[in-house]
Nucleic acid binder design. Structure first.
Length: 422
DNA sequence: TCTGGGGTCCTAGGACCC
DNA sequence: TCTGGGGTCCTAGGACCC
């Protein structure tokens, strides 16, 4: 017998986890999953998009990623709840603990999805998947779909079939019957752009893609065209990788509550982003060689600029300085709604080559920033703040409050002491 | 109606070196 | 004299995922 792979996918994850929390921890009686409801960001802070929706909300054609205002138009009685990332982390860990009882070959693919290599673990995979699904519901109160097949791609496609709370198989012999009739957009890694190009070729279903000549696909989509053809034929030999691969880059970005119109405020936001980002680098023992900033202006136009550093760094000051130089070269004065810093060229050798012209005393700054890291780890993120975030007057003060004293809120340390108990 | 935040991978042109 | 070819690095942009 060949490989047996499960893909476990939490149904409407953020919304289900919130629903369970309200029922079991807040003593509520209303189950959000049974009414049109959604998890959405705060419109006031301009984070207003739909992150997850209930199955009744889906009937109103509400889609993940669409603006909250849009969703309310489609369904005025929609019940909206704010996101709670700490709850999601706890819920995810609780799920993974159950999965670990079945195999140690588990790859966490995202906060609400995991692959399991079940090869040799079960004589009847479909039945085992059903037991797993029931156990998750019994112990944790939320439902999952489980896709069962002989590779990751097919297992993932299978878990996406009818929802919720179902096990589906998609063995190679079932590909034609279960997968080839689907719209090509539903194939993993076929997005909007590929769908459009394929439509121009007359390719609308996964089955049609599977039978399109390589030369045609390469001409249209280059190597990606050949990749999605392999997927359409159910071919995928990627292993279930229990250890997450090391980061190739680190980024931090933020939509600001109000447009940024002056460079001093922009520099402050960039400092806030650089601070969280470099703390992550130091926590991982990583350094980066390339700094890129991204801007999104009030007309929603994106722009980017990057620069390579002379020497790898994990220092807030150096990343901030590089980001500010990019900013000066890039910004044309249009009011900004979003700023980001993204870094790449990761190295993990902690020995920094001190260049002849190293302008900073690296060791001195490194010591200071490491001391701040330790303080925050021990006493919380708010224990120490830069003066610029404390003393910012007026409008800047408001912005500084949104920065959480230089630490983006979503990245605050998760308190795992409050585990889910049902 | 007014669009988040975190990633990965691929392509392509130009600079530069041998 | 006036030009090949391979390799690597840098920058920019696009597409996809959750």
């Amino acid at each position: 017998m060949g490989r047996v792979i499960f893909h476990v996918d939490v149904n409407s994850a953020f919304l289900s986890w919130e629903a369970v929390y309200r029922l079991h921890h807040l003593g509520g009686t209303l189950d959000l999953r049974t009414i049109p409801s959604a998890v959405g960001g705060d419109q006031e802070k301009r984070h207003g998009i739909i992150l997850a929706k209930s199955i009744p909300a889906k009937k109103y054609k509400i889609q993940t990623g669409e603006p909250v205002a849009n969703a309310k138009e489609k369904c005025p009685e929609l019940v909206l709840v704010p996101p709670n990332y700490e709850l999601y982390q706890r819920s995810s860990r609780a799920l993974l603990r159950i999965l670990a009882d079945y195999t140690d070959k588990i790859e966490q693919y995202s906060i609400d999805e995991a692959f399991m290599d079940m090869t040799g673990c079960s004589e009847q995979p479909e039945q085992t998947a059903g037991e797993l699904k029931e156990r998750v519901y019994r112990e944790l109160g939320f439902t999952v779909n489980v896709g069962v097949s002989s590779n990751k791609l097919l297992a993932k496609m299978a878990s996406d079939f009818q929802k919720p709370n179902l096990v589906h198989t998609l063995w190679p012999g079932e590909i034609q019957m279960k997968m080839w009739g689907l719209p090509v957009r539903e194939l993993f890694s076929v997005g909007h752009a590929s769908e459009k190009k394929l439509a121009a070729l007359g390719v609308h279903t996964i089955g049609q893609l599977a039978e399109t000549p390589d030369s045609v696909l390469y001409g249209c989509l280059k190597s990606h065209g050949l990749q999605i053809k392999r997927f359409a034929n159910g071919l995928d030999d990627s292993p279930v990788a229990p250890a997450p691969p090391p980061n190739k880059g680190y980024g931090n970005s933020l939509t600001t509550p109000r447009d940024v119109t002056d460079r001093e405020t922009a520099r402050l936001f960039l400092l806030s982003l650089a601070e969280t980002l470099s703390a992550r680098l130091r926590a991982d023992g990583a350094m980066i060689r390339t700094v890129e900033i991204s801007l999104r202006d009030c007309h929603l136009k994106f722009s980017h600029r990057q620069r390579a550093l002379e020497t790898p760094t994990d220092l807030t000051v150096e990343i901030h300085e590089a980001a500010c130089r990019c900013f000066e070269e890039l910004w044309d004065g249009t009011p900004l709604r979003h700023l980001g810093i993204h870094t790449s060229g990761v190295t993990r050798t902690m020995e920094r080559q001190l260049g002849l012209f190293d302008r900073l005393d690296y060791e001195k700054y490194r010591c200071a920033e490491a001391a701040v890291d330790r303080l925050r780890k021990r006493y919380g993120q708010d224990i120490i703040k830069r003066a610029v975030f404390v003393e910012a007057p007026g409008e800047k003060r408001v912005l500084a409050d949104h920065m959480g004293g230089g630490i983006s809120r979503e990245k605050r340390r998760v308190d795992y002491t409050k585990e889910i108990i049902l």
